[in-house]
Design a binder for these strands. Structure first.
Lengths: 153, 153
DNA sequence: GTATTTTAAGATAAAAGGGTCTCATAAACT
DNA sequence: AGTTTATGAGACCCTTTTATCTTAAAATAC
């Protein structure tokens, strides 16, 4: 799998938040229900994103989670790096430690090229962009149902 | 991780075989020593590749494993598909089942493009090509040491 | 035919990732 | 102040992957 499950859940949750109003704090329980993710597991993932300054939380009644920056200011790469780290974008395709320009494996050059295209895609795509697309075409963010079902409270 | 460890080991082993003389059967024990892979684990992986018709084995004294086809006739994709399956090249970046043209997620289009570039790289690269490069530049196939150390018996 | 060298196949064990549960802490409302 | 609603942090279990160990089977050489 390219991205870990934690990372995928983090992306889905971030997209969900970006699709809601900016200032609104959304309870994790609500998010876990809507996105069909285990509450406690999602909590852990959101904690990571909060620690990285991508999200912010508010305790107490009417508390919850929201984006710290605007959705257009959060690239997919930010979330991937926060959860999975840079491994995917730096590691050797043959799993050799320290494979780089100075000590490469036979596949290094070709793989570096491919890897860069992944990097570029993640770096140039922001949350708002995907939310717009999702809303316009009613694309799904969960196993079944469209984008709209996320919002009928 | 992009490729499973089994798959990475399978690739390294296949490159090793492609670098040796075509007709020669190489004992698994020798390969596991040279490539620093657990003997029994490597055995299992090679069995998969043998079952897929990429390698062939010969039992008894002077037996071992060799490529069934020529190295230039084996693409990296063949090995990846044999061990990891098509998952990497078909799955949704957001982990949604059945994400495709008819029921996509917001990231589908962008990811499909990136995924295709991985597919293309694996499909257009063959073993002999990498062996040539490895020999010419003495690139490593193991944690330390160059290409040449694989061949002093 | 028997010993030897090899692959083949299965059970088993260790490690990592994914997921759940419980308790503690913080903040807001009454 | 106390209750409620929420996050935060930890221990814990389950499943998959990775790795090891043991035994069986095949084929060659003698």
């Amino acid at each position: 799998m390219l991205l870990s499950k934690s990372c995928v859940y983090g992306l889905r949750a971030s997209l969900y938040l970006a699709a809601r109003e900016q200032g609104e704090f959304v309870p994790i329980r609500k998010m876990s229900d809507k996105l069909e993710i285990s509450f406690h597991f999602l909590t852990k993932i959101l904690q990571q994103l909060t620690a990285e300054g991508i999200l912010e939380s508010f305790k107490g009644p009417n508390g919850g989670i929201r984006l710290k920056r605007t959705g257009s200011d959060v690239q997919l790469l930010d979330i991937v790096l926060a959860i999975d780290g840079s491994q995917l974008l730096t590691e050797c395709a043959l799993g050799l430690p320290g494979c780089g320009l100075k000590n490469p494996c036979p596949l290094h050059d070709k793989w570096a090229e491919t890897r860069d295209s992944i990097h570029e895609m993640l770096e140039k795509t922001n949350l708002t962009e995907l939310v717009h697309k999702g809303k316009a075409e009613n694309l799904r963010l969960t196993t079944e149902g469209g984008f709209d079902i996320l919002f009928d409270d």
